[in-house]
Design a protein around this nucleic acid. Structure first.
Lengths: 215, 215
DNA sequence: GCACAAGTGGACCGTAGTCCGGTTTGTCTG
DNA sequence: CAGACAAACCGGACTACGGTCCACTTGTGC
């Protein structure tokens, strides 16, 4: 049902759940041994339950029970449900970010900006589609969706690429618009409600980039 | 705090809450007198509470109590919280829809398509901004946001205008993209979180339309 | 008036999130 | 190294709220 959520990397039992994703990865000074152990157990349990029953059917209490831990501990570690889901996405999100920030071209640096922009959209469409149910859970509240580090990274990336491509005008707003096309809920709607094939969405992105970057 | 939500029109005590907005306004055959009375009382109470405390602080139970009605009745009439919020928006939404479907140009028919498109975006930005907190409440669940009649109307409208403007390519996806710029949560973020002035958002829309429609 | 569909209300349920008394852990001191 | 202390942590009882259920009531057509 759910895609394998690929747990947080082994080297990060002391990683705070609310930590910024790639760009501002300042590690919290210390976390007590028992706290770290519980975080790991909770992530493992949550990951298993999500794989078994789908993200939307996993309750916080069930996660706590599966990790043999009190409910309060779950909330202390991850803040709220959204925080837990984000923590589950953390590893995959980091890998994805690395591909366009420092990976090989055309996604990473080295290719012309427009080419990178095209590749970025396609990569994002595929990445989000792969973890769609986790992303949907992690973006429940429509208000908090925009201030999350993961989105900031994308906006910045697109903004920079647009500037490199020589696009003039209100590049910031243009970047927000482009990212609107890659919005989780929109992708979910077009793919699952309207049953549009992936190829059409990817072609749509390429067309959009072309429209926007031509001078 | 909340803008006056301007109750549903007086002629519609028998209007079902889940009725489609403007385009498919088929009235439900009959609604018992007591049911109609309770609907009116609930809408009045909800409207007052929203104006007093803000939409996000109004609980379903409070609405029921304020209308001297059982909680079950609220849910029977409006389905769920989102349904109630939409019902509160109904009147304003209809007026807004009429302005671009059959109102005077440049918003309504009569002006060239590109001109109408520009006017549509500006009008939508203003309309959504005016009722922003109600819209935010009415779009809580990120999944159900897209299948709502109000959105369908807008997508169709933009699609038609794009075609009239002679835009080629995947016009449907392009319409979705343009509407992404007018998304409630995005507007809220840009206006209230990032504090962008309304003029900039409106200029951004015009610029976007220009980019997309030029051949 | 009668039958019956439609409507009602409040007890009830599930779940997210809070709170706080008790416990564990890391550290500092003698 | 032992003891002591504070901060961090734990867990489960508790609250709040959205939503469901169903036995009972009421309006409506015949």
């Amino acid at each position: 049902m759910a895609p394998p959520p690929s747990l947080a990397p082994a080297e990060s039992p002391s990683t705070p759940a609310t930590r910024a994703l790639l760009p501002l990865a300042n590690d919290r000074p210390q976390e007590r041994a028992d706290a770290a152990r519980n975080r790991a157990r909770l992530l493992e349990a949550a990951s298993r339950l999500v794989a078994e029953h789908g993200a939307e059917h996993v309750t916080m209490e069930a996660v706590a029970a599966a990790a043999s831990v009190g409910k309060g501990t779950v909330f202390r570690r991850f803040g709220d449900r959204v925080g837990l889901m984000r923590a589950l996405l953390d590893h995959a999100e980091r890998e994805y970010q690395e591909t366009f920030l420092s990976g090989p071209p055309p996604l990473g640096p080295g290719a012309p900006a427009v080419r990178r922009l095209e590749a970025f959209g396609v990569a994002t469409l595929r990445h989000v589609t792969k973890y769609i149910d986790l992303y949907l859970e992690a973006e429940q509240c429509s208000t908090r969706r925009y201030t999350v580090p993961a989105r900031t990274v994308r906006v910045t990336h697109v903004t920079v690429l647009l500037q490199e491509a020589g696009v003039t005008g209100d590049v910031e707003l243009l970047a927000e618009t482009l990212l609107g096309y890659l919005d989780t809920a929109l992708i979910n709607y077009l793919r699952n409600e309207r049953a549009l094939p992936a190829e059409r969405l990817e072609a749509g992105w390429t067309e959009l980039v072309a429209r926007v970057t031509r001078r």
